[in-house]
Amino acid sequence: MHPAEALFDALLLLSMVVLAWQGVHARNMFRAVVSFMMFGLLTAVAWVRLEAPDIALAEAALGAGLTGALLLATLGRLKPERRGARLQRAAKLSMLPWLALGLAGTMTLLAVTLALPAPGLGERVLSAMPEAGVDSPVTAVLLNFRAWDTLLEIAVMLLAVIAIWSLGQDVLASTSRLPAPSLPALVRLLFPLLVLSTFYLLWRGGHGPGGAFPAGALLAAGLVLALLAGARVPERMTGAPLRCALAAGLLAFIIIAVGVMAEGGVFFAYPPRHAPMLIAIVEIAAGLSIGVMLTALFLGGEPTDTQGGST
């Protein structure tokens, strides 16, 4: 490795650790959240350094962008943290043994991880790629070799939406607009670009970095930006159409997984002839529904309810 690269990595990782600490322990909660968002951005850079562009894309949109927006929206709705100065000092003292324990744990973990041979499955994935139906190894793992994981993961996301909606109406609400007058204009400019990039990433996922996850994340980022700029979910889209859009991804996944059993009798075994097309369908369905579900997570409640409240 080039010394300059090593220096860059060292600085990057050091800042990440410092920001992570700040993100958890900063005295002011707002500073904590902002540090955490910066931590997310640097993590995205770290993914680039680790040659993981797919993760970098998803992290930049999700880890830094969407999580940050969610955190800020939450923060605006909370009571200020009540914690006297005396209490804080007492807490600091009691932190010492924990710190020692943490350091010991870190060192043990490092010693163990350094000794790991890490054989990995790279070779196996590579040798199975000709039958995978796509050219990108990551997409092949996500949508073919380990597609069952991805199906369950989409179920997790839908569950999160149901869980948040079940808590009652208008939890985070879309009223948490950013006080930036130029935002609407900027969003009008950015939104078509983001949607366009979504489809570009979906299309690219077949052969290079991209695919359903980053595409969905980008779509969600665009939609959330639009919401922040004051856009509202159109009246005719709320209720049943929105619910169907949210459910569509998981349903499409299940239908294809079970449907291909007609050919070979094996769950999720795409017939070789149709594999590229089926994977493309799954990818588009997954990408779009990930985008819609992530936006719904940000909405924090059924939009029908917020609309009823605001108009």
Partner: peptide, 13 residues
């Protein structure tokens, strides 16, 4: 034992 998607472990699930 059932290999999902016909992919044998360790590649598949």
């Amino acid at each position: 034992v059932h290999a999902i998607g016909g992919w044998e472990a360790p590649l598949g699930i």
